[in-house]
Structures are given as C-alpha cells and as structure tokens.
Amino acid sequence: MKKEMIEEVVIVGGLVMVQFVYAGNSLLMSYLMSLGLGPFTIVIFSTFATFLILSPFAILFERKQWPKELSARLIGKLVLISFAGVTLFQSLFLEGIRLTSPAMATAMPNLAPGLIFFIAWIVRLEKMDMKCVYSKLKILGTLLCVFGALTMSLMHSASIIQDEKDNASIFVFDRDRVVGCIYLLGAVFVLSTNVVLQASTLAEFPAPISLSAITALIGVLITMLVQLLQNESGKVLTRSLISIGNLVGFSLLGGMVSGACVSFNGWAMKKRGPVMVSMFSPFATVISVGFSVLTLGESICLGSVGGMALMFIGLYLVLWAKGKEGFSQIESFECEFDAKKPLLS
C-alpha cells in the first residue's frame, strides 16, 4: 500500500513537473527569438540535439526491432513525418509563439486530442458509433475545443479603443496576433495529422525511439534545405545576440530535458494509461499564463480565459469518453503504437 502511494505521488508530481518544463520551453523559445534567432535555426539545432541524444538509445534497445528492408512506401512515410513533424510543425509553432505569446502557444496543443480523433476517424484508425453516447461526447468535446480555440484566438487578438467622435467603443484586431493564432492552429493541425501518420508507420517500423531519431535527422536536413532556399543560412546567426556555443548548449540541454520528459510520460503512460497523462496537459497553459504575467508583464483578458476554459472542457470530454469506452488501460507502452488500435486509447 505504501509503495503504491509513493508511486502515485511520483507519477502525479512528475507529470506536473513535465508541464512546468513544457511551459518553460515556450518561454525560452520566445526569449531566444527575441534575441534574433530565427525559427529555422532553433529547429535545426534543437532537432539535431534530439537526434544525437536518441541515437545511442535506439541502437542499444531497438536494433533488433528495425525492419530488415526499407520499402519505398516506408521511406516516403519517414520523409513525410520528418517534414511535417520537424520542419513544418516546429516552424509554424515557433512563428506562432513569436507573433502571439507563450501562453497562447501552450494552450493551442490542447486541441490535438480532438483533432487526432477526428482525423483518425476519417482514415478509419478510430472507431465511432453514432448510437453510442461516448462517441457523441467525443464529437461534442472536439467541437468545444475548436470553438474555444477560435474564441481564445479572437479575444487574444482584439483590443478595444474609444472613438472620440462618436464616443463609442470599437473592436480592433492586431494583425500580427491574428496571423500568429493562424500559425498555431496550423501547427496543431499538422501535429495531429502527423500523430496519425506515425501510428500507421509504427506498424511497419515498430521502434519508436529509432523512428524519432531517424525523422529528427531527416527533418534537420529538410529544414536546412528550406533555409538555404530562403537564403537565410548565415543571416540568422549574424543578427543574433547569442553565440554559437550558447546555442549549442541550449540545444543539448533542451534535448536532454525533452528526452527525460518523453521518457517519464512513457513510463507514466505504462503505469496509469494515456488518459491520465493527457489530463495534465492544460497545466502547462495555466503555468505559462502565470509565467507570462509575472515575467513578461502580459495581461490576459476574460474572453481568452473563457476560450481556454471551453478548450479544457472539450479536452476532458474527449478523454473521459475515451476512458469510459474501456480503452484507457494498456498492457504496455509499445501497444500505443499499434495502428489497429484507436489512437486516443
């Protein structure tokens, strides 16, 4: 009994700490971009650090699980996952952070479970029975997430000014913030689609660490190519106020911390299931809002808070419905990557 209680405290405390790390990561990315670093530069260094850190573990623990041959279809999937998950997602996400705020950036990913469910249902990796109340709740939760995200985006981008002539209040939208919210919404959609693609790929390549390492390396190469095509290969670093040494240090530290967080989430998922792990994701938003108010002096309007609340309610509806369907318990972490199993189980 005592051992179980200690384990429960470790899991809950660890999951909360992981959310602190995720919130801090958004603030760090915002700070690095304020020093002149471009999104592509951050993506290249941080993703290459991830590759360096994951590769030894992939070789040690998953070498026997590597496929004997790489088909053209599998190579195509790896390239697509790399482009979507590394180059496109991270670039959109970082650009969204730059134009909005870390708080907004940590709130948007709460859309992902609902979008993953919807996309997986379209490609028949997720089941849905309209006669089942839980399927209806998942749809309702997804709609609430989307509506909450749109509300939060609009309220975050709007400000009220007083018209001196008519003495009336006028809503004015900040163009940069609107564009930033669109970037974040696009990033979450790309992320959700990529998760579905990863699930199907892991059926052919049943080595999640190796898959992450390979796609990280391919993603770095693709991002470097995109940056070269945009003629930004040297421009970002020369304008930056941060040295190469510090950038490498930040990247390696971020890679190690990120790897530790992913590993802990995997262990917690094995012990308590993915629903419990996912339930803690809104904590990062709350923490990030607190950090932004205290350190960056940002203000949060009631409309944005209301949008966040709707998104959180929608998220928990989706997760609760999934748990009630009986898929929340898993035998092992590896079975999370079975393409025949519902993705949000």
Results as ranks from 00 to 15, higher is better:
Asn194Met: 01
Val196Lys: 10
Ala23Lys: 11
Pro109Arg: 12
Thr87Pro: 04
Phe327Met: 12
Ile6Gln: 14
Glu331Gly: 09
Ala284Tyr: 07
Ile59Ala: 14
Ile214Phe: 07
Leu37Lys: 02
Leu28Tyr: 12
Cys335Val: 15
Glu325His: 04
Ser153Ala: 15
Leu125Met: 15
Leu78Ala: 05
Ile11Ser: 12
Ser157Leu: 03
Asp338Glu: 15
Ser240Gly: 02
Gln65Lys: 14
Leu294Pro: 10
Thr215His: 06
Glu126Thr: 03
Arg239Leu: 06
Thr151Val: 10
Gly96Gln: 14
Leu143Arg: 01
Ser332Arg: 14
Phe312Tyr: 10
Val220Met: 04
Gln90Arg: 10
Met152Leu: 07
Gln227Met: 15
Arg124Pro: 00
Glu126Asp: 08
Gly314Cys: 01
Thr215Ser: 06
Leu80Met: 11
Ala213Leu: 11
Leu310Cys: 13
Arg73Pro: 00
Leu154Asn: 00
Ser281Tyr: 15
Ala213Trp: 15
Leu202Glu: 06
Met33Asp: 09
Lys127Ile: 06
Ala203Leu: 02
Met29Arg: 03
Tyr31Leu: 05
Val195Lys: 01
Val16Tyr: 03
Gly307Met: 09
Ile182Val: 14
Thr151Phe: 08
Lys136Leu: 02
Ser288Pro: 00
Leu319Ile: 12
Leu74Gln: 05
Val146Phe: 06
Gly36Gln: 07
Ala339Lys: 15
Ser233Arg: 09
Leu150His: 07
Phe93Gly: 00
Gln230Tyr: 09
Leu317Cys: 13
Ile97Met: 02
Thr285Arg: 07
Ile209His: 07
Leu78Asn: 07
Ala158Gln: 11
Ser240His: 10
Ser46Thr: 13
Lys270Asp: 15
Leu241Gly: 13
Asp176Trp: 14
Pro102Glu: 05
Val16His: 07
Val133Met: 06
Arg63Leu: 09
Gln65Leu: 09
Leu225Glu: 07
Thr50Trp: 06
Val79Lys: 03
Pro56Val: 04
Phe89Leu: 04
Thr223Met: 08
Leu202Gln: 12
Leu92Arg: 09
Val289Tyr: 07
Phe118Pro: 00
Pro102Val: 03
Gly85Asp: 14
Thr47Gly: 00
Asp176Ala: 04
Arg175Cys: 01
Ile161Cys: 06
Leu88Trp: 13
Asp338Pro: 08
Ser71His: 08
Thr100Phe: 06
Leu78Thr: 11
Met269Ile: 11
Gly314Arg: 09
Glu325Val: 01
Val123Met: 03
Gly303Ile: 04
Phe93Pro: 01
Ser288Asp: 01
Pro282Lys: 03
Ser345Ala: 14
Pro274Tyr: 04
Glu334Cys: 02
Leu296Cys: 01
Asn231Ala: 01
Met256Cys: 15
Leu143Trp: 02
Val18Glu: 10
Arg239Met: 07
Val275Ile: 15
Glu62Trp: 08
Val236Leu: 00
Gly148Trp: 10
Ile300Ala: 02
Val196Leu: 01
Thr238Met: 10
Pro102Tyr: 11
Ala103Gly: 12
Thr238Val: 07
Ile313Asn: 05
Trp320Asp: 08
Ser281Arg: 15
Leu99Glu: 10
Leu27His: 14
Leu315Cys: 04
Leu302Pro: 07
Val190Leu: 02
Ala58Thr: 05
Leu125Ser: 12
